[in-house]
Amino acid sequence: MIRYALKCASGHAFDSWFPSGAAYDALRDAGHLACPVCGSDRVEKAPMAPRVTVGRDRATASEGAPDAQQDAAVPANALSAPPKGELARAIAALRDKIERETENVGARFADEARAIHGGEAPERAIRGEATPHEARALLEDGIPVLPLPFANPKKVN
Rank of each mutant, 00 (worst) to 15 (best):
S40C: 06
D67P: 02
A65Y: 05
A68Q: 06
R56L: 12
A61E: 07
C38L: 11
D41Q: 07
P36H: 00
A34S: 13
R51P: 00
A61N: 05
V37P: 00
K45P: 09
P66C: 02
C38E: 02
V43N: 00
R58K: 04
A68Y: 09
A49V: 10
A61Y: 11
T60V: 12
C38Q: 09
A61F: 13
C38K: 10
L33C: 08
D67R: 02
V54C: 03
G39A: 04
G64V: 00
G64H: 10
V43M: 01
V54K: 04
G64A: 03
D67Y: 06
S62Q: 06
S40Q: 03
R56G: 04
V43F: 01
R42Y: 03
V43A: 01
A68G: 15
A61I: 14
P36C: 00
A59P: 03
E44R: 11
S62A: 12
A59I: 12
R56Q: 14
V43G: 00
A68I: 05
A49R: 09
L33M: 12
C38D: 13
V37Y: 07
A49W: 04
T60Y: 04
D41N: 14
A49P: 00
A46Q: 12
A46F: 11
D67K: 00
K45E: 11
A46E: 13
T60M: 07
V43C: 01
E44W: 08
P50S: 15
E44M: 06
S62I: 13
A34H: 12
G64R: 11
S62N: 09
V54D: 03
A49D: 07
D57N: 15
A68P: 06
V37S: 01
P47K: 15
G55Y: 06
D67E: 15
P50A: 15
R51A: 07
T60L: 13
R42M: 06
E63V: 08
P47F: 14
D57H: 13
A61W: 12
P47Q: 15
R51Y: 10
D41P: 15
A68H: 10
A34N: 06
A65Q: 08
G55W: 08
E63D: 09
G39L: 04
T53K: 11
C35Q: 07
G55M: 09
E63T: 10
E44T: 14
L33W: 05
S62R: 03
C38S: 07
S40R: 01
E63L: 14
C35V: 09
P36S: 00
D41I: 01
D67F: 10
C35W: 07
